[in-house]
Every structure is written in C-alpha cells, then in structure tokens.
Design a protein around this nucleic acid. Structure first.
Lengths: 210, 210
DNA sequence: ACCTGAACACCGTTCAAGT
DNA sequence: ACCTGAACACCGTTCAAGT
C-alpha cells in the first residue's frame, strides 16, 4: 500500500491548529493532537514550527491577516471605524485569538495593521502624542470589548460550570445593579454596543484634535 | 525531632500562590512548586482548594479585595475615577492578575466592586443602558490599558527574547509610525496616559448623560 | 479532618536514528 | 530535508492509605 499524503508545511500546520482551536479552545490545542489531526507524528511538527509558542504566534498573526486594512482615501474617522469593525468581527469568529492577542509579539500581518492605524491618525492631523492615545484607545476597545463579550458568552454557554454558581450565589438584594447588568447582557442583543462605545471614543478623539 | 509547622489553610495557600506568581509569573506557578514552597506535599493542597482553577480564581478575587471601594459621598465622576486608579495600581503590582481577570468568574470581592461601580453610575443619574456602557468603557480601559502596559514592559524586560527580534526585524522605513509609537513607549514615562484616556472616557460619559 | 505516596493520563521537547 | 520512536522532565489529579 503506497503511502501518499500531502507533506507538512508551516501553513498547513497553522491552519490545522486554528481549526482545532476554533473547535476546542486554545487549551484543547495540543502538539500531539495537532499532529494526529494531520496524520503525522508529533515530532514532525517541529520541522516546520520552532515550538508551541511559535505556533500560537503564527496563528495569531494569521488572524491579523484577515483584518481589513486602511483605506487611505477615506477620512481618518471612517478608515479607523472600518478597521475596528473588521478587527472585531475577525476576533469574534476565532474565540481563542483575543486572549492570545496581548500575549504575543506582533507578526508581519499585525504590524501592517498597526502601521495602518497609526498612519490614519497621523495623516489625519493628529500629533505623535495624540496618535499614541488614539491608537491605544481604539485597540484597547477592540480587544477589551471582545474579551468581555466572549467571557459573557462562554459563561452562558457552559452553564452548570462556573457561571451557574455565579448567578445563583449572587444575592439579588445585595447586588441589584449587577443583576440588572447581567440581565442586560442576557436579554438584549448587544449588536450595537461595540459601535456605540467606539463612536464615543472616536468623537472624543475628534474633539481633542480640534 | 518534633515536626511542628503551621497547618495549611486556604488563605495561606492563596498567599503563597500569589507570592510565587508575583515572582515567576503565572506559568511558573505549579501545584507541585506551590506545595514545596509551603513545605507540604502536592496533594495536601487539595484539602483546601478544589483544583488549580479554584486556586487561580481565589487569587484573582484576593487581588480584587485590595482595590478601593466606592465613596458614596463623592459625585460619580470622582468616585469612579478613584476606583479606577486604585484598580490600575493593584493590577500593576500583580502582573499575572490582569491576564486572569477576564478568564475568571467574579468572586465575592470583585462582585462588590462591580456593584460599587454600577451604583456610582446609576445613582449619579445614568439610566440602565448608559450605566451599562459606562461600566464596560471603564473596566475595559482598566484591564485593556494595564494589559498593554504590561506587554510592553515585559517585552523590554526579556529583551533577547521575543522583543529583540520584533524591533530588529522591524524595517524602520516601512513602519515609520510604529517606530515612532514604540519610541514613545520606551522613552516617555507613561504615568499620565492612563488618566488621560480615563478622563477622556469620563468626559464622554458626562456629556452623554447630559 | 488533614496529610501523604504511588500511580495515571497527560504535556512539550531533545536526541539519535531512519529515509 | 523531512519524518519518526523512544525517552526525559515535567504537569494536574484520583485513589487508597495512613494519622
């Protein structure tokens, strides 16, 4: 029986890793399972990937590559808005990526987006200091909001796990506002919230730049 | 030789865990090392802690307990400002806590702070929806900013590690604004940046509430 | 009630050996 | 150049046994 199979490559490994992480979360991503899912032995991976950290960094940068880049034709506010919405979308479809985002050093794809975002501010009339603030305010919103969004949805997913105990222990008389807040998350669809706060930030920046 | 030693307790374990995490990061915190640092065997820990997740959750909530609570006498903006600065300070002194913050379900100490923050908004004249936005904007800023702050300082700490390659590979002509941005981080002390953006958020909220 | 030793089912990674 | 088997040094956790 001739054993024909597509040889391993860095890209194939990254894609398989992303598929596994999408399904089982980043904790379910194991070098051994990853190799098995590709039909190879564990050690074969190390011919294409330095180690697990390198694998994860590669996956994160792959994700970054899926995010929209800057349209230099548009005014800074529109361009930043579009980039932010795209980044948010991409992060939501790969639930493991947001956690890793702040732990990994930027790769080439992410560097391009960083440069794009900074360029939008600088060429939109921001000085270095204000561009710096704008950059952080916007990226913080993207990562922070998505992180919170995911933690709420994970909580309601794996009910009976942590979240159940959380809501049960929670004395509704002692924590009226927390109850109200959680209810808001559970009942209302939060489609517009990301944009609402984003616009709050962008308007604030616009006012600062004068 | 009589073997006298202080018996284990949940609090002693949490404190030892925090000390270990402060020193070696959360990856360096192992049930086995933790037990050793206390002079006990691994399995003794499980008499006081359900599992490692429970340990980490306990540590995070301990940290939450160190954060200032709301002063109901002060106007909402002052109260929220003080709570935010305190939270930021505490997170900065326990570098492992910020990462864990969004992964762990809130414990009692953190719940109290959540209620405090929401109460400050609601009793300051915000309706439920706006309080919701305020809560997220502020907590996102605290966690997100601290996370980025730590990732930059870790990068410059462990130079020769990731960060060196990052800055070297970075072509200064292709990424002029990223270079400018990183320089800003390296050279300027960022003492005031957290407060600058915080005030930008609080001012925005104040305008929204009318 | 609390502590412990041995064991289980995993990890990531090195190293030498194959082709 | 790429793949692999065996081994190493770890993990968290279960379970039965001690006191």
């Amino acid at each position: 029986m001739t054993d024909i199979r597509i040889p391993l490559s860095r890209d194939r490994i990254l894609e398989a890793g992303m598929a596994l992480a999408d399904q089982n979360g980043v904790d379910g991503l194991t070098m051994r399972k990853l190799a098995a899912s590709l039909g190879f032995e564990v050690m074969s991976l190390y011919n294409h990937v330095a180690n697990k950290h390198d694998l994860l960094a590669g996956m994160v940068d792959w994700i970054a590559g899926e995010m929209e880049r800057r349209d230099a034709e548009r005014p800074w506010k529109d361009a930043v808005r579009a980039m932010s919405l795209s980044a948010h979308d991409v992060l939501l479809t790969h639930t493991w990526a947001t956690q890793l985002w702040s732990e990994m050093v930027p790769g080439p794809n992410r560097l391009l987006r960083m440069e794009d975002l900074l360029a939008a501010f600088r060429e939109g009339g921001f000085d270095a200091r204000l561009a710096h603030f704008g950059f952080h305010a916007v990226t913080m919103h993207i990562v922070g909001f998505t992180l919170q969004q995911l933690s709420y949805s994970i909580s309601s997913d794996t009910i009976g796990d942590d979240a159940a105990g959380f809501l049960d222990t929670l004395d509704r008389d002692d924590f009226p506002y927390v109850v109200e807040h959680v209810d808001y998350h559970v009942h209302d669809d939060e489609g517009g919230d990301f944009e609402f706060i984003l616009d709050l930030i962008l308007d604030g920046l616009e006012r600062s730049v004068g």
